[in-house]
Amino acid sequence: MSQSIVSINEDNTAIWLAFKEGSWEAYTQLYNIHFKALNNYGYKFTRDVNIIEDAVHDLFIKLWTNRATLGNPTSVKNYLYKSLRGVIFRKMQVQSRFVDLECETDYNFSFEISFDHQIIANEEERELQLKIKTVVKTLPARQQEIIYLRFYEGLGYEEIADIMEININSAYKLLYKAFNNLQGALKTSKLAVIIGLYSCLGAYVYKN
């Protein structure tokens, strides 16, 4: 499963090749195609827009400066996600060395999705979303990120492992952990529906 499950507008390969040849127009296109998605992804790690903008800036400077030596990624978007993630982490590590040093188990930063501005008229759907929100919030950042990449970005496990810079086994393990953590949390909260959502992630581990 090296291909994206959801391959929306993934015909960026031509643009990527032109950009590598030094086409300013292709470079501009890359920026305009991915700017919004990159900001959205970055926003999950920090609410500090300056950090995100600095990271996007640094990422694109690096792209142009090193264009001649860049490879041909299977998915341009995934490549940009992975790079942006790295830049943001470095920036935030510099900024928060004090807070970091004591917690090595999880990320030194949070991964946070928000539903605050969603207006849902349907009562049943609103209830379901509230449940999801409550359970997801209790998960460690890495587990939240893996769920996000899977269900929001629609990525395969190989792609997730690549972006998060872990090996595929670790990706499975991480999901397994998310699953275990949730079982504990859900026992008390009776969110039977959500159990389905996470059991499936656990089941993936066995399947592979």
């Binding site: 700017f35 919004k36 959205n40 539903f115 969603q118 979303q129 999801i132």
Partner: peptide
């Protein structure tokens, strides 16, 4: 599909104003 769709109905930050 309800579960996946409910999860996906989340806030999006595009920062378009600063693009």
């Amino acid at each position: 599909s309800k579960i996946i769709l409910a999860y996906r109905k989340q806030d999006v930050f595009t920062n378009e104003a600063n693009q």
